[in-house]
Nucleic acid binder design. Structure first.
Lengths: 123, 123
DNA sequence: ACACACCGCTTGACTTTTCAAAGCACTGGG
DNA sequence: CCCAGTGCTTTGAAAAGTCAAGCGGTGTGT
């Protein structure tokens, strides 16, 4: 009964992908333009390289992102990650989250009632 | 810096919540109507009780869902979980995912070209 | 009355995922 | 040459999630 209906509901699958840790962050970062590995790591904010590599590989096999190895002149290899068309369309998802976040998550303070002056879009 | 810069980008926070395992599934299930504990567990499809309890608690403190203990007649206590207004508005997010999933995730099978006719959309 | 299948949930052991830190091979600037 | 920066890989340990079982309670059938 364990491996049950991994069967095939696209939404179910989508959620499965998007809820992997950092995935949404990665996509969001990449929506602002393609980035190199470390650059991306910094943009994402707090993901360690091992996990990042793994996520990136996964997203690549799903063709949400592409890894292009920039061959400047023979040797130097700077890897640049960017979104594929499919990945780009996640913009709508990010937008939805963004919209929701702004209306419902601006002053949560559930147990920590101490956010003085959440500085109006610190983003 | 290490702990987490919960520093305050609502989007960042939102992503932080939504990428927790099962959260999106839970929300999606609840969008179809309120549910009891085990009922929800089944709807979500594969989450175990321990994790579910934990997620539900978390979502409750964020006021995305409410737990109402149904006092049928004096004793029996059936707990019913339902979305708050804030939670309900996640509909847009789910919709976005749904739309995206349908256009880009219908037949991936990238590295595992081995889906032996997944039993005709068990969704 | 009693067994039995449900309900909501907790507990404890076990597995998987994520992590921080370090290291490797390389380059470009001073 | 040396140091900072690039793109990763490797460790081992901690955190998160999972499984299986069980607890008290109810409601139904026999």
């Amino acid at each position: 009964m364990s491996t049950e209906h991994t069967g095939f509901c696209p939404v179910y699958r989508a959620i499965g992908v998007l809820q992997e840790k950092w995935v949404l962050h990665i996509v969001r970062a990449l929506l602002n333009g393609e980035k190199g590995f470390n650059e991306l790591a910094r943009a994402v904010g707090g993901c360690n390289s091992a996990t990042l590599t793994q996520r990136l590989e996964h997203l690549e096999t799903l063709t949400l992102i592409t890894k292009r190895t920039e061959d400047s002149h023979g040797k130097l290899a700077r890897s640049v990650y960017s979104l594929t068309p499919a990945g780009l369309e996640l913009q709508s998802v990010i937008d939805a989250i963004d919209g929701w976040a702004k209306s419902h998550l601006s002053a949560p303070a559930p147990t920590t009632p101490d956010l003085p002056t959440a500085p109006t879009s610190p983003c």
